[in-house]
């Protein structure tokens, strides 16, 4: 299904679009976001007024050189940090707090960030625990997700007993656990070999498309970036 194209750097109000009779809900909207860090006594402006919007089921890749501000933007989009100026809205709401994050957002990181004391199933279920509900339904969903990422036989393996690719699959399943509206993936293939990385991208794009989840993928890999529905490039704190 083709997704509506939206100008990555236009204000959200201008990018709400319709495609035929289908109206795609605006999931993520960042408008004129600025972010400055203090590096010693020097002020370092990382983002110079970034605007981006992502619709339901849409996949957007962000490429850029190291230090261009990709990860900073991702953290702002995730509500983990606040912009100096500008706004980040989730489904039109400015509430990007921890309470809402658990259900709205899933994140995948370069270093997987699995909890070493928990097995694969426990790690996937952790997302549900933080969201406040773990019952038989959630346990079954976690098992289904592990089966979906090809780890049905390894649900009781600890992270230390899994390969890098398998760990990232667990992280993908965890990101999907609470049926989020949006997944933010920060260099998810950065620590994987090419073949494994390709399979992870396949998995992410496939599952997001299947479940109508919006995806923002930060990557260095041009091939992976082009596989997203829309690709933007970041340079010196600006989206191009």
């Amino acid at each position: 299904m083709s997704k509506p194209s939206s100008a990555g750097f236009q204000p959200a109000s201008e990018v709400e679009q319709q495609a035929g009779s289908l109206r795609y809900r605006l999931i993520l909207e960042a408008s004129d976001v600025h972010k400055t860090y203090l590096s010693g006594e020097r002020r370092l402006e990382v983002l110079h007024g970034v605007s981006i919007s992502v619709h339901e089921g849409e996949s957007v890749s962000i490429r850029g050189e190291s230090g261009s501000g990709k990860s900073t933007l991702l953290h702002l989009l995730a509500g983990l940090d606040a912009p100096d100026t500008g706004t980040v809205k989730w489904e039109g709401s400015l509430d990007t707090g921890a309470g809402r994050r658990a259900r709205f957002l899933g994140m995948v990181f370069q270093s997987f960030y699995l909890i070493p004391e928990l097995d694969a199933l426990g790690n996937v279920l952790m997302a549900a625990r933080v969201a406040g509900k773990v019952g038989a339904t959630e346990k079954q969903r976690a098992k289904d997700l592990l089966a979906r990422v090809g780890l049905a036989e390894r649900e009781h393996h600890l992270p230390s007993q899994l390969s890098g690719g398998e760990r990232q699959r667990v992280a993908v399943a965890r990101a999907l656990m609470n049926s989020p509206r949006l997944i933010l993936a920060d260099e998810p293939t950065g620590n994987l070999d090419e073949k494994t990385g390709d399979s992870i991208i396949d998995l992410l794009l496939g599952l997001c498309a299947e479940q109508q989840i919006a995806l923002v993928l930060v990557t260095h890999n041009a091939a992976h970036a082009t596989r997203a529905g829309r690709s933007v490039f970041m340079r010196d704190g600006l989206l191009q």
Binding site: L80, A98, A102, M107, F109, I115, V130
Partner: peptide
């Protein structure tokens, strides 16, 4: 430290 960051990213509050 990273796991603490992850818990925040998953939606855990500072108090939790």
């Amino acid at each position: 430290t990273r796991e603490i960051g992850l818990l925040g990213a998953l939606g855990g509050s500072s108090r939790q």
